[in-house]
Design a binder for these strands. Structure first.
Ligand SMILES: [Zn+2]
Ligand SMILES: [Zn+2]
Ligand SMILES: [Zn+2]
Length: 966
DNA sequence: GGGTTCCTGCCAAGTAGT
DNA sequence: ACTACTTGGCAGGAACCC
């Protein structure tokens, strides 16, 4: 017997140790390969860790460079999230921050944190105990044993009362730290696990990773799955009926590490609820597989996850989300309506209110704009309030959901709450690929989800099924539709049309995905129909998509199912123009609904926004929020986007404190029109064709106009592109996909908004010849050429100046201060700023020998003390070369899609570069940033590195040592 | 009013290509 | 070596913040 025994040894401590070690590294900046800028803070971290813990980052890093900026999260909150990611614990978080933390967790797809909020809606079951203000929660340990312990589920259930009370309640379990769990549970868990082979000798406790073993272990599977789900808390979608037993789901690599395992009890209950919907168990794996091709990160929440549902999240999502959604849709629909049009930055808040989704929604919007998200995130009090309200509603919604949600819902319900990164595009592509109209799908799929609401078919279902991934998995599906939508517009190329159209579509999509399908769909349909047609240009419009509209349209446009889609003919532009309203309406409807629903919507929105430029545009217009800025740069990075958004500066958003040159002036200067940015949806809306085209904020939409990127997964789709589009074949993960950059520009000069230099501006009679270029306009005024920024329309006499300026929009390059957390868009700004830290006085008065840190101060001194004017005679003072080693440092660039190599290099390279510089006394002697090589990374023994890794966290990644020689 | 940041024409230095 | 281009520093004005 014994000989037969299998020995299993598990290092129980390993996960903790590993995590601890990683955290140490993070804190010391060791091997950190990404800088996350949040507000004015910089966080160094490891992409692997972040991506494994956050669905958002997972997707983001597929496209982003080493520097990413999050505008939808506050630094304070992100710091907590980061701590959690690296410790599996949430400790000492102020209760007043809990909601925001949860919201942020949802946006970031950090399951555990996101799930903290779940209870709120459903929590009834949960036992709640109120503790101090500080909440301490920990998911079961990453590896955890998770498994069986029922408790675990409760663990994270920190939540508020379902009631309005904002004070979070920490469940008993919640308090448990992973460690504690460890200790307490492991024994038990291990045993449990070991159950099967009692005879086996097992050292250790942690649960082994998924053993598929139990058929019923859905729970496990769920748990495991749940993590995934958790990732996309939003995703919650839930849905899927089928709970497969088995699939132990391999959590994709993505699966966030520290997922919480739902308590069995919970699981069971969930399962039950789900069961009703349930479908074939098999789905899980198969679905997964199918989905996998897409490779979308989010997909994590794929059907499998869904299926496995056991996860609390799933269950929750199912019950709550779907129903709520439906409700939302329904209820909301009535309420929705134009009024809300006014979205501006401030609107965002309003939106939130309407939507209910506040917490989520707001950020989402921001995210959308930014791609990553703007800073809006800060939840406004209103938002919080809304949240609480929504939560209340959620309960109702849940109850309703039960009734409403059918299997179909699950599918439909599934949407990505998360802010999805660009990756989603793929899904979109998939969607696109689908045969344009395949009624079958619709019918076959899940047509019937929401009974009440109308037959709207759950678009998602259909889409998903048809779409690339066979898997009905929602997430992907959901995504895809949205993704396509935006794409479509782009293709169409009509700036105005596309935008408008897209918007509506997006909205619709979102709604559908959200699970709103049923309810929402009804509303959405109209829009969809109208819009899609426009998009049609694409060769293949996913039949699913068509179906979606149809189903949804059921209400509005009964006929329209396929028609809308199939026939490109836009319903009517007018509608499109108005679409915004509808969109808003749609959103609004949600407001009444449960928070989940809201969240989902918002998230979806975000997601869409992020992934879909068109969506962004949509958002922009309707909301006017932000200008989403899609930089004209081929490589749009989320971070970049976000930054751009920042640039735009929506009043409401608290911009990160990146030193954005434009912030100050943008509104004022760039948009000569006061309040332009503030334009609300209402203003822009429907009516003003001009706005549509040229936009609200000149800056924002221009950016958007600049370029739009669509990703196609098949070359065949490319054919349908209109001329002028650039197609880039993707390599790496996205290989086999194609990014299409569609230039969409408005004529800056059209409205005379172009700001010419004073010298040239005045003459009305001046002859103007405008020449469009790829990334800018050239305006020839009376023989003088001015280079016009597409975004803000500022004019420059030299193209270099324009190029330099443009970075304030694109933030393609970032120049972080080496001494603090500030980040600048221009190297010079940083350089000047850093003088504050170094105190270096390079300007010396030759008259008295006194030195000053800058020319201005020196000049003041000379005038006052010596009655001399340095400007008149430069020789009156001496400008010493930089002593600071930081002089002329290369920027952190977002532009690089980042292959791992480059990424790594980046960080290092910078430091290296810095090293070199200091050596050169003369500032100008230094060479600009150059491409890095591994040689740069690894310092030669002989070399005396100026910098060395410093443990200091955050801000300065490197400690620099000034060579003795210097 | 001082300190800081932003803006932009101008220019120097460096790089890449020929 | 030359040219074209990029990068970033400088000057000096302006704006912003406290
Ligand atoms: Zn500009
Ligand atoms: Zn600083
Ligand atoms: Zn002096």
């Amino acid at each position: 017997m014994e000989s037969r025994k299998l020995i299993t040894a598990t290092d129980t401590q390993y996960s903790r140790t590993l995590l601890s070690s990683l955290n140490e590294q993070r804190l010391h900046g060791i091997f950190c390969d990404v800088t996350v800028i949040v507000e004015d803070k910089k966080f160094r971290a490891h992409r692997n860790i972040l991506s494994a813990s956050s669905t958002y980052f997972q997707q983001l890093f597929s496209v982003a460079g080493q520097v990413v900026e999050l505008s939808f999260v506050r630094a304070e909150i992100f710091a907590e999230i980061l701590k959690y990611i690296y410790s599996s614990k949430i400790v000492g978080v102020r209760t007043d921050l809990l909601e925001e933390l949860i919201k942020s967790g949802q946006l970031l797809g950090v399951r555990f944190i996101a799930d903290l909020g779940i209870p709120l809606s459903q929590m009834k079951s949960m036992t709640s105990g109120v503790k101090d203000n500080t909440v301490k929660a920990s998911p079961s340990d990453a590896d955890q044993k998770s498994i069986n312990t029922e408790k675990p589920a409760t663990k994270y259930v920190l939540t508020k009362d379902s009631g309005s009370s904002a004070t979070p309640i920490v469940t008993e379990t919640s308090n448990i730290s992973s460690e504690e769990l460890h200790e307490s549970t492991k024994a038990g868990n291990c045993q449990d696990k070991s159950e099967e082979s009692d005879d086996d000798v097992i050292f250790c406790s942690e649960t082994l990773p998924p053993k598929p073993r139990i058929s019923n272990d859905t729970e496990r599977a769920q748990q495991k799955n749940s993590p995934e789900i958790a990732k996309s808390p939003n995703k919650q979608m839930s849905v899927n009926t089928s709970i497969s037993d088995q699939t132990p789901l391999t959590p994709k690599a993505n699966s966030p590490s520290p997922t919480n395992l739902p308590p069995k009890a919970v699981m069971a209950s969930q399962a039950k609820s789900l069961s009703s919907n349930i479908s074939s168990p098999t789905q899980t794996e198969t679905e997964v597989v199918s989905c996998s091709p897409l490779a979308l990160p989010e997909p994590q929440a794929t059907s499998q996850d869904m299926d496995t549902l056991p996860n609390p999240a799933h269950s929750l999502s199912v019950n709550i989300s779907s129903p709520t959604r439906a409700q939302d849709c329904v209820g909301s629909s009535p309420e929705l309506k134009a009024p809300k049009l006014e979205m501006t930055s401030s609107d965002v808040v309003k939106l939130a209110n309407f939507t209910n989704s506040l917490p989520v929604s707001i950020p989402s919007l921001s995210q959308i704009q930014a791609g990553t998200g703007l800073s809006t995130d800060r939840v406004s009090p209103k938002a919080e309030k809304i949240i609480s309200d929504t939560e209340k509603l959620s309960n109702k919604a849940n109850s309703l959901a039960a009734c409403i949600s059918g299997p179909g819902q699950t599918q439909s319900g599934s949407f990505f709450p998360e802010p999805v990164p660009p990756t989603l595009q793929r899904t979109c592509l998939d969607m696109v690929k689908l045969p344009k109209q395949e009624p079958d799908i619709n019918s076959s799929v899940s047509p019937s989800n929401n009974l009440q609401f109308q037959d709207v078919t759950p678009p998602q279902m259909a889409t998903s099924a048809k779409i690339s991934s066979p898997s009905p998995t929602q997430s992907k599906d959901v995504i895809s539709p949205s993704g396509h939508m935006p794409l479509m517009p782009c293709v169409s190329h009509h700036p105005e049309m596309s935008k408008q159209r897209t918007d509506p579509e997006i909205v619709k999509i979102a709604g559908q995905q959200m699970g709103m399908n049923n309810a929402i769909s009804a509303q959405t349909p109209l829009i969809l129909n109208a819009e899609f047609p426009n998009h049609l240009p694409l060769k293949d419009i996913p039949s699913q998509i068509n179906s979606l509209p149809v189903t949804t349209s059921g209400q509005a446009q009964a006929s329209g199912t396929n028609l809308g889609f199939s026939q490109p003919s836009t319903v009517s532009t007018t509608k499109l123009l108005n679409p915004q309203q509808p969109d808003r309406e749609q959103l609004n409807p949600l407001s009444n609904i449960s928070t989940f629903a809201q969240n989902h919507l918002s998230q979806t929105m975000n997601f869409l926004a992020q992934q879909l430029p068109s969506f962004n545009t949509f958002v922009n217009k309707p909301f006017t929020l932000n200008s989403v800025n899609w930089p004209s740069c081929p490589n749009l990075l989320p971070s970049t986007l976000s930054q751009l958004a920042n640039t735009d500066k929506l009043p409401t958003f608290d911009g990160p404190k990146l030193q954005n040159p434009q912030k100050a002036t943008f509104h004022k200067k760039t948009t000569s029109k006061p309040g332009e940015l503030k334009i609300k949806i209402a203003d822009v809306n429907p009516g003003s064709s001009k706005d549509c085209s040229s936009g609200i904020g000149s800056g924002s939409h221009h950016i958007m106009d600049g370029k739009k990127i669509i990703t196609l997964d098949t070359p065949s789709d490319i054919g349908g592109l209109s001329t002028g589009c650039k197609v880039y074949a993707n390599i790496g993960e996205d290989k086999d996909t194609y990014d299409i950059v569609i230039p969409i520009k408005n004529d800056p000069d059209e409205d005379g908004e172009v700001q010419l230099p004073k010298s040239a501006d005045g003459s009305p009679n001046s002859k103007r010849v405008k020449v469009k270029h790829e990334d800018h306009y050239e305006l020839n005024v009376d023989g003088k050429v001015y280079y016009i920024c597409l975004v803000c329309k500022r004019s420059y006499v030299s193209r270099t100046s324009l190029r330099r300026h443009y970075n304030v929009h694109s933030w393609e390059r970032k120049y972080p201060c080496h001494y603090c957390d500030k980040v600048y868009a221009l190297a010079e700004y940083r350089t000047k700023h850093e003088v504050i830290h170094t105190g270096e006085k390079r300007y010396q008065c030759l008259t008295c020998g006194e030195s000053f840190i800058n020319h201005r101060i020196m000049s003041t001194h000379m005038k006052s003390a010596h009655n001399q004017d340095p400007s008149g005679d430069p020789k009156l003072y001496r400008l010493h070369p930089f002593k600071s080693p930081h002089a002329k440092q290369p920027p952190e660039s977002n532009a690089q899609p980042s292959t791992s190599a480059t990424e790594v290099n980046n960080a290092v390279v910078q430091s290296e570069d810095e090293k070199k510089r200091p050596a050169s006394v003369s500032p100008k002697s230094s060479s600009p940033a150059k491409p890095m090589s591994w040689d740069d990374v690894f310092v030669q023994p002989g070399d005396q590195p100026i910098f060395k890794d410093s443990p200091s966290q955050g801000g300065n990644e490197f400690e620099f040592v000034i060579p003795e020689s210097y």
